[in-house]
Amino acid sequence: MEQSNGPIQQPLHAASADPAFVPGITGVVAPLDDAPGPEDEPRDAVVAAAEESDVDADEGADEDAAPAVAEGGGPVFEAADRRGRIVADAEGVRLSYDEEACEFRWDEIAAVESGKGRFGKRFTVTVHTPDRRWYPIEIIAPDRGHITGWEAGLDAVLDAYFDEAS
């Protein structure tokens, strides 16, 4: 017969294993039976909605291919995925991720660092402030070719607006 000499460890029941453990977090609410769903819509409406989303996706691809230009004639950098967004223009740098957002004017920025994952499609931009704080954001590119374009676009904006002497 085999006997353990060490302490008996109970399974971990915490937020890392079960999000329902955290008080205040609620689950997904099921739709009411009275609410109209996609099955209640006529088939023509569903097809029309799908065609509109295809048109929007095609327009987004064209925007990534052409460099953006601000109203004043200077370059604008914009990169986004389903959760995060980076915008850099004459006003400064704006980062947003889900519901969180922050905005930095060019005089508030000490450095802007960008990098790409070695094997993946992740593009990371980190904004450093003079008080030694940094604000990173990671955007997932649709394909690896977009990352090269994003790096070139960000470099163009930094060259145009960022003054390293400040």
Results as ranks from 00 to 15, higher is better:
Ser53Glu: 15
Gly120Val: 11
Pro31Glu: 08
Ser53Gln: 13
Asp58Trp: 12
Gly84Val: 02
Trp150Thr: 04
Trp150Ser: 09
Glu63Gly: 06
Met1Asp: 14
Met1Phe: 00
Asp107Pro: 01
Asp54Val: 00
Glu52Ser: 05
Ala88Met: 10
Lys121His: 07
Gly149Val: 09
Ala68Gly: 03
Leu154His: 01
Glu52Arg: 12
Pro23His: 02
Ala101Asn: 11
Val125Asn: 04
Glu39Cys: 02
Arg118Ile: 14
Glu151Asn: 12
Val125Gly: 00
Ala48Pro: 06
Pro130Trp: 07
Val28Leu: 08
Ala156Val: 04
Asp131Met: 09
Pro42Thr: 05
Gly120Tyr: 07
Thr26Glu: 06
Ala111Met: 08
Arg94Tyr: 07
Ala65Thr: 14
Pro75Tyr: 00
Glu41Met: 15
Leu154Arg: 06
Ala160Glu: 03
Gln9Ser: 12
Val125Ser: 06
Arg133Ser: 08
Asp62Ile: 12
Phe119Ala: 09
Pro23Val: 00
Val69Ser: 13
Ala80Thr: 13
Ala45Lys: 13
Ala90Gln: 09
Ala50Ser: 08
Val157Trp: 04
Gly92Asn: 04
Arg105Gly: 13
Val112Thr: 02
Val87Tyr: 04
Arg83Pro: 00
Ala141Arg: 07
Glu52Pro: 03
Asp155Lys: 15
Trp150Ile: 05
Val93Trp: 09
Glu39Val: 03
Gly120Trp: 00
Ala110Cys: 05
Val47Ala: 15
Glu63Ile: 06
Gly72His: 13
Gly145Thr: 12
Gly153Phe: 00
Ile8Gln: 15
Gly74His: 02
Ser166His: 13
Ile140Ser: 13
Asp143Lys: 01
Ala20His: 08
Ile139Cys: 01
Pro75Val: 07
Gly117Cys: 01
Ala30Lys: 03
Gly72Phe: 12
Ala110His: 03
Ile147Arg: 01
Ala88Gln: 07
Gly37Ile: 11
Val87Trp: 04
Ile109Tyr: 11
Arg133Thr: 10
Val29Pro: 08
Asp56Met: 15
Phe162Ser: 07
Leu95Glu: 06
Phe123Ser: 04
Tyr161Leu: 05
Gln3Trp: 13
